[in-house]
Amino acid sequence: KTLKISHVRPQDTAIDKDLRWFSETLAKASDSKIKTKIYPASALGDYTVVQERVGLGAVDMACQPPASAADKRFQVVYFPYMVKSWEQARRNYSAGAPLRNVVAELYNEQNIHLLAAWPVYFGGIALNREPVEPGNPEAAKGIKLRVPPMKTFQLLADKTGYLGTPLPFSEAFTAVQTGVVDGVIGSGAEGYYSSFRDVTKYYIPSNTHFEVWYLIINKELYDGMSPEQQKEITDVATQFEDRRWDMAKADQAANEKQLADYGATIVPVTDEQIAATAAKIKKEVWPQVLEDVGAEWGEKVLAAIKE
C-alpha cells in the first residue's frame, strides 16, 4: 500500500521538496517497504479536513498546521509573540520540549501520531498600500486586514490598530486585489510569496507568530507497523525535522528577498518595536485566548515555555 501524504503548498515549494526528500529517504531506509505519494496544494482538502481524514485513516499522512476546529487548545501553538527568536523556537518546538509533548498529546486525542515538526517562519503583515506607523501598536492605522478565522489573529489585528476583516481564504487574494481589504495577516514571507505576491507591495516582518507545521500519521496505521518500520519512519522524520531547523532561518530570509525581488518593499521593524507590541499583546490578547482554551491548562503550557 502506498501512503498518501497531503500538504498545503504548490509543487516545488520548500515543503514539497522536503517531503519528496522524506519520501525517497524513507523508501531507501525501508528497502522500498514503505512507499509514499505526495498530494500537494491541498488536493485532498484544506488542512482542517485533512486532519480529520488523517484521524479517520482516509488520508495516511500530512504535513500542515494543526487545526483548532477539532480541539481549540491547538491555538496554544500559535499564541502571538510566544517566542522571540529561532533559537528559542527550536528549544520549545522540537522533540522533548514540554510544548512538543503537549502538541503530541492533543494529536493523540485525534487518533493521530505526531512524527515531526516543520518550522516555517515568523509571521508578518503583507500590504497592498503604504503602511502607517508599522512599529507602533497604539496607532490607529485605518488599514483593513484580512484575518484568518482564528481568534488569536482577529484580536492581534484589532489590538495593533488595524481593522481586522474576516474573509474566507479563497476570497482573500481577489479581495486584496480589488481593494475590499488593504492587506493580509496570519502568514509569513513564504506564504505571502506563494499566494499573495502579486498584491504584496509592502511586507512588515513584525514576527506576529511562529508558524510551525507538523508531520502527522494516522495512529492505527503507525501502531500497526512493525517495530523496525516504526523506527525507520521515526528516524527519517527526525532527520526531516533537523534538516529543516538548520535551513528554516535562511529560508525565511530567502523568501523575504524573493518578495523584495518581486517588487515588495520590506518595511524595517526594530527589536524594540517588536518587544513593545509583544508586551501589549501579552497583556491584552493572551488572557482572552487563555480563557477559551481553559485558563489553568493554558497557563501551565505557557509557564513551561523556555526563554
Binding site: 484521524g55 483548532s68 476546529a69 477539532a70 478565522p149 482564528m150 482577529q154
Partner: peptide, 16 residues
C-alpha cells in the same frame, strides 16, 4: 463521527 468528535467553529465555538 461528527457527534463523537464534536467540532466547534473557530472563534465563536458553536458546535458544528
Amino acid at each position: 463521527y461528527a457527534n463523537r468528535v464534536w467540532k466547534e467553529s473557530p472563534t465563536l465555538y458553536i458546535p458544528t
